[in-house]
Amino acid sequence: MRKVLTTLAELVLVLLLVSFGVFLLVALIPGDPAVAILGDGFPPEAYAALRAELGLDRPLLVRYGDWLLGVLSGDLGSSIIPPQTDVLDRILAALPVSLQLAGMGLAMAIVLAVPLAMWSASKPGGVVDRIIGASMFGILSVPAFLIGLLLVLVFVNELGWFPRAQWVRIGADPIGNLHHAFLPALVIALSELALFTRILRNDLVTTLNEDFILAARAKGMHPVRILVGDALRPSSFSVVTLLGISVGRLVGSTVIVEYLFALPGMGTLVVNAANQGDFPMVQGAVLVVATIYVLVNAGIDLSYGYLDPRTRRAHAA
């Protein structure tokens, strides 16, 4: 329990730093939002007025304080690009798409990676291990957009198994939504799958050489039961860590997949906002993604205590 509390306290501090970092980063992006809005050949008075309206004439720290107060009260401001929609509304529309994609993709990757890694590791250097290993390197070496394009060509254009229509909200039509999300999630899953399989396979091979595995065998346990019941948990540190990093990465940066499948996710939102100099939108979106990233990794941190009871003691002391 104490571990959870200290982790929470750390989280608040980290998120505060993240928010300042995000703010600073966006403020330092070259280019003047006012110029971007006004376009060429504007009168100087209009420029000054717009800067005042956007609050850009005030000192950086004052603007940060203002923004932070807004964020804490749930107000991320509104877009400076017409129509001047509410940033939070736009994010709340895009975030579920990204979360679903990342979630489905990672779930597919893990569900496939665990048995593949176990199969590989059960006979290191064997035929199965080599075939799986080579396939994973193959997947890793092909860029995601190429795999995506191929999948679209074959399964959407040729076979017509999957729709290429508008995104369907999961609330509106769950089956249609899953149908639509399957291919993009698969593209995401493949590269993660390759990574997870390699990492988990290597850790499993190491664990399987441990004495306690031999001891488990000597008790007459079935090899598959030993793999699942004895070897998997002590071997899962790296892959769980990687999983946490992947969640954060995927929520904010699946632009290519979103573009390929015309999905209105966070990646598209951020990229468009950045291109248009829509700084409140970029700030809000990056802050949300960063928060998710930090939260997920804090959860991963706490899960180590479950994965290895020995780490619990270190924090309790």
Binding site: E210, D211, F212, A216, A218, G220, D230, P309, R310
Partner: peptide, 24 residues
């Protein structure tokens, strides 16, 4: 053979630091 291990023949290993599963 697995059915022998336990009821017929069993082994005590050298290093008790490594022959027990740390997460069990």
């Amino acid at each position: 053979r697995r059915q022998l291990w336990g009821p017929r023949i069993a082994m005590v290993f050298q290093d008790p630091m490594t022959s027990l599963n740390p997460v069990k």
